[in-house]
Design a protein around this nucleic acid. Structure first.
Lengths: 239, 239
DNA sequence: CGCTGCTTTGAAGCCCTTCAAACCAGGTGG
DNA sequence: CCACCTGGTTTGAAGGGCTTCAAAGCAGCG
């Protein structure tokens, strides 16, 4: 159940057997969700954090006029609202994009971890800081990259993040999102996303069709995206 | 020296005398910086976090073509690269926007805090999570708000954040940034920032001239910005 | 087999950029 | 004390990237 989560943690730090046991012991109820379901509403009081086992969820905020901005995507193994442990209620909503399976981790268990496992606490703190790194990179995309580069960048980011948990390889990966949802991530209209995807396809860089991303030339894709995975902190840090 | 910092922490949580002493005891060397100086370069190994005492700094990333995106602003009392404690090197640079004074807090001191003060650890963890909340709100601005709303939103955010440490009131606040720097925050060109500021001024909402923001009608400004300070977590949370 | 939701394409328009130049304030030096 | 320089602000005009509006195409499904 927590194997993908551990894969992800261990890609960046050492996790001892004791710590692994503490994590496993913190797991609560497993729940299944259909696609397109708001799992947590913005502002709602939260008493447990959610570890995503399978599927894809997003963080989002809506504006008055109905425009939606997705501020982050989450894949299997992500502790997607670990920040709710310190925030107690979220500034944004959490929405499933696909059918999902997730475990609840009661905040008391996390408090216990902070009291008994300082190193693991730092690992989890790191993990929320990593979310912030991704937010910053998205700010760069939204603020400065063209629609084309922005689209390419997201496809590169997901390749790396899904690759960490064995859900992507050099050929491509499953991406069960609509173009409208991509647009909500990218700050673009569905129409323009469609045009950018066509341009990427016609340039021989990537193809996105029927829920699957297929790389045609990943090297050049990275280049048009100006994608540098450094912000994803893939290196293992000494304890 | 850490009074503004404590003001900010205590606006959101209780800090005991012991914890305050631990914070005070963690302070290291005080340094002064001129304006427009890169204090920390992206990727550089960092062994201390920086608490800003006076002035304004920013987090930024540059693209190949020289475009710069500022992903966050920091004011007096902010622990501006507390996240470097867990990250060990930053994904972005840190730049002074004005002359600044700051204290270094060695990471060993922070490790000690995580080992001896679980509650304070959670407070600091919260603090980096709050940075992420601000990043997310900026993503919404950059992705979905018009230039006008985006500009208005930033001026509202700074009013609240500076207000917390006594540097802003209902009338306005000092904002020693150029329009070009505002543009780097807002994902706009300096020219367009200028036009948006004019529009806000002519609409009787705010005025920004010679380094000072003056509110003409804060209520209506919040309204065009669709500014809701909830994401700044201003309420005091029970221990 | 027709509905539904997603994708694709076209055409027009607008927000923001780009380029260019004038304006203005503050600081420096003759 | 004014001329000059520099960095920032302001304005105009033209252009482009993305949106908006509209409709057709397409796949999956009851």
């Amino acid at each position: 159940m927590i194997d993908k989560h551990l894969l992800k943690l261990r890609a960046r730090d050492e996790i001892s057997a004791d710590e692994e046991a503490a994590i496993a012991g913190a797991m609560g109820v497993v729940r299944n969700f259909p696609a397109d379901k708001v799992v947590i509403a913005a502002g709602e009081e939260v008493r447990a954090s959610t570890l995503l086992i399978e599927g894809m969820m997003s963080r989002f905020k809506d504006l008055r006029g109905g425009e939606r901005q997705i501020s982050g995507l989450h894949v299997a193994g992500d502790f997607l609202d670990l920040h709710s442990f310190t925030l107690k209620h979220l500034d944004h909503g959490i929405l499933t994009l696909t059918p999902c399976r997730a475990v609840q981790v009661p905040h008391e268990k996390l408090t216990e971890i902070t009291e008994r496992f300082p190193h693991l606490t730092r690992v989890y703190w790191f993990s929320t800081n990593l979310d912030a790194c991704i937010h910053r990179e998205w700010e760069v995309s939204l603020g400065r990259r063209t629609g084309l580069a922005r689209t390419a960048h997201l496809l590169c980011e997901l390749k790396v993040r899904l690759g960490l948990v064995g859900l992507a390889d050099e050929r491509g990966y499953a991406l069960p999102l609509t173009q409208a949802e991509l647009g909500e991530c990218l700050g673009l209209t569905p129409v323009h996303v469609n045009r950018m995807l066509r341009e990427l396809r016609e340039a021989g860089l990537v193809e996105f069709r029927s829920g699957r991303v297929t790389f045609l030339d990943y090297r050049r894709l990275q280049d048009v995206a100006e994608f540098d995975p450094a912000y994803l902190y893939l290196e293992r840090r000494p304890r």
